[in-house]
Lab assay of single mutants.
Amino acid sequence: MSIQHFRVALIPFFAAFCLPVFAHPETLVKVKDAEDQLGARVGYIELDLNSGKILESFRPEERFPMMSTFKVLLCGAVLSRVDAGQEQLGRRIHYSQNDLVEYSPVTEKHLTDGMTVRELCSAAITMSDNTAANLLLTTIGGPKELTAFLHNMGDHVTRLDRWEPELNEAIPNDERDTTMPAAMATTLRKLLTGELLTLASRQQLIDWMEADKVAGPLLRSALPAGWFIADKSGAGERGSRGIIAALGPDGKPSRIVVIYTTGSQATMDERNRQIAEIGASLIKHW
Rank of each mutant, 00 (worst) to 15 (best):
G85F: 14
A84Y: 04
I259H: 10
D113N: 00
E56F: 06
H285P: 03
L205N: 01
L135E: 02
D36I: 14
D113M: 07
I244R: 03
M209K: 05
L73R: 03
H156F: 10
T139D: 07
H151W: 14
N173D: 12
T112H: 01
V101K: 12
N152L: 12
T27R: 02
S281W: 05
K213A: 09
T126N: 02
K284M: 05
K71E: 01
D83I: 01
G216F: 13
V29W: 00
H110S: 01
M268G: 03
E164L: 01
R41K: 15
R59A: 03
L111E: 01
P253R: 11
E61F: 05
L219E: 10
A133F: 02
L150Y: 15
L79C: 15
I125M: 02
L223A: 10
S254H: 06
V101D: 13
L137T: 15
R238E: 03
D33Y: 03
S51T: 06
R159I: 00
M67Q: 09
M268E: 05
A185V: 04
A245W: 09
H151K: 13
T179V: 05
T262I: 15
G236S: 05
E237G: 09
L47C: 11
I275R: 12
L55N: 07
G236L: 04
A185E: 14
R238W: 12
G142M: 02
Y260T: 04
M180A: 06
L136N: 10
D83T: 06
W227F: 11
A77F: 00
A230T: 09
Y95H: 05
A235H: 03
S201V: 12
R91F: 14
T131E: 07
V106D: 15
E119I: 09
R162P: 04
V78G: 11
F228M: 01
G76A: 03
L120E: 15
R162S: 08
T147S: 09
A182G: 10
T69F: 02
E87P: 14
E166C: 09
R176I: 03
L218P: 07
T198K: 05
G226F: 03
L146F: 10
P60T: 09
S254C: 12
A211M: 15
P224N: 15
N272Y: 00
F228R: 02
Q204A: 04
M184E: 13
D212L: 03
D231T: 06
S80I: 01
G194H: 00
L199T: 11
I45S: 00
K190C: 15
F228N: 09
L282F: 06
R91D: 12
T126L: 08
T126G: 03
I244D: 04
N152E: 14
N134V: 08
D231C: 06
R81K: 04
R220M: 12
E166N: 08
M184I: 08
A124W: 02
S264I: 11
G85Y: 10
L74T: 12
I54M: 11
L191K: 03
I45P: 00
M67S: 14
E46H: 11
D174W: 09
L188N: 02
A276Y: 06
L136S: 14
A246P: 07
E56P: 12
S281K: 09
E195T: 04
L199C: 12
A245Y: 10
C75N: 15
T186M: 11
L199H: 04
S96R: 00
A276S: 13
E270H: 14
A185K: 14
A222I: 07
T158E: 05
E119A: 14
G154M: 06
N50H: 03
T139M: 02
I256G: 06
I243Q: 05
R41M: 00
S233E: 11
V82F: 15
L205K: 02
D129V: 00
D36S: 03
P25C: 03
E119Q: 09
E35N: 05
T193I: 09
S80P: 06
H285K: 01
E237P: 09
A276D: 13
R241E: 07
R176T: 10
V29T: 02
A133L: 02
G39D: 10
E169Q: 05
L49V: 05
Q265G: 09
L137P: 15
R41H: 08
G85K: 14
E61D: 07
G90F: 01
D129P: 00
D33C: 02
F58E: 01
T107A: 12
E56D: 10
E145Y: 15
Q86L: 01
D48M: 08
L282A: 09
V82Q: 08
Q265S: 09
D36G: 05
A183P: 09
M153A: 10
T198M: 13
P172F: 06
K252A: 07
V157T: 07
R162T: 09
K252W: 11
V78A: 08
R41N: 04
R59N: 13
R255T: 05
E210V: 12
L223V: 10
R202Q: 08
L38N: 01
P253K: 14
R202P: 06
E210G: 11
L136A: 12
G154Q: 04
W286Q: 03
A123T: 15
K32N: 01
R241F: 09
G76R: 01
R271G: 11
A230G: 10
D155H: 06
Q37M: 11
G236I: 05
P224C: 05
R241I: 07
E166R: 10
